[in-house]
């Protein structure tokens, strides 16, 4: 029996969701420290994108990047962060094949002209395209995580008319790819997924392979401005503290936990900043989510 002083009047459901990442990570750390668990190799592959998921990863806290690097995994490769360059770096990347590793990919796969619109290095004199790298590393990895919109489904890199024929990595891999949609991916979504993989293997996923612990409920269902929607009080310009549905908010179709998690040290999020959600964490972003902002508040009537 729990004693009464444990009873909280906060909703336990929301609370536990927010703590998911941190509690998983702490368990990984404890088990590694106690030698119950071995550190696994992590390869972070950048393809045709903006490297914004690397920056978002660096923006993470509890756990932060240092913790990932020193306590959770053996990080083998990151174009943005690794010391070595040139052929030494390429060796470091391809030498991991044959061992146990988890592959995280950001950026889309450019298919145009045999992938030559995205060259990620030169190995023993030969150009390595992003397409070749993800094929070779993706088929052999223990797990593959698509980090962000571009790796998950092409994202902005594949926006019409898709000049470089970009696709998500699932389109070139015959295997399960866990997809962390979002532009960028929140550091907690990646860290929490990684921690789950390290502890228990593959997390429960939705029908498009996104972890349910982050992606199951729409923004609209947990929006702090939901009462304005229900009362029909709609913003007509940015900067108003009411519902932005009529200005193009994509909260009703976007399944992600931004309203309760928030960003950058959990201080704010787009709707909290009086601007509409643009659906960056949903498949189809950006083309299916436009216009992002509209002042035509009578649309659809």
């Amino acid at each position: 029996m729990k004693s009464l002083d444990c009873v909280s009047f906060q909703c336990p459901y929301q609370e536990s969701r927010l703590k998911t990442t941190e509690s998983l990570i702490n368990r990984v750390k404890d088990e590694i420290a106690k030698d119950v668990r071995q550190k696994r190799n992590l390869v972070w592959l950048e393809l045709n994108g903006c490297s914004g998921n690397t920056i978002s990863l660096l923006d993470g806290q509890n756990p932060d990047f240092m913790y990932l690097l020193t306590q959770m995994t053996n990080m083998i490769y990151s174009n943005s962060l690794m010391n070595s360059g040139g052929n030494t770096a390429m060796n470091q990347l391809f030498d991991v094949i044959g061992s146990d590793y988890i592959l995280a990919v950001e950026g889309a796969v450019s298919l145009k002209d045999n992938g030559s619109y995205n060259v990620i290095g030169r190995h023993n004199g030969r150009e390595i395209t992003g397409y070749e790298a993800v094929k070779r590393l993706g088929e052999q990895a223990a797990h593959v995580i698509a980090v962000g919109a571009c790796a998950s489904h092409g994202g902005v890199s594949a926006a019409r008319p898709n000049p470089t024929q970009c696709v998500g990595i699932q389109d070139v891999l015959q295997r399960k790819v866990i997809k962390l949609t979002g532009c960028p991916c929140h550091p907690d979504w990646f860290m929490g997924t990684l921690a789950y993989l390290l502890l228990y293997g593959e997390p429960p996923l939705d029908n498009r392979d996104r972890p349910l612990m982050f992606y199951s409920i729409t923004i609209h269902d947990r929006c702090p401005r939901r009462s304005y929607f229900d009362s029909g009080i709609f913003a007509t310009k940015l900067g108003q503290e009411t519902c932005m549905y009529m200005m193009g908010c994509k909260g009703p179709v976007t399944q992600i936990d931004c309203p309760i998690r928030q960003w950058n040290g959990h201080v704010n999020w787009p709707v909290g900043n009086d601007s509409p959600c643009i659906g960056c964490a949903q498949f189809g972003f950006p083309d299916a989510m436009e216009p992002f902002i509209t002042y035509d508040t009578m649309r659809g009537e």
């Binding site: 920056i55 923006d59 932060d64 040290g265 201080v267 960056c280």
Partner: peptide
């Protein structure tokens, strides 16, 4: 790492989130 992260935290305080602020 703490200070670069907090530079982005300041940005998000006024801009909703970052990278790709609102």
């Amino acid at each position: 790492l703490r200070f670069s992260r907090e530079a982005h935290q300041m940005l998000a305080t006024l801009g909703g989130k970052v990278p790709h602020n609102h």
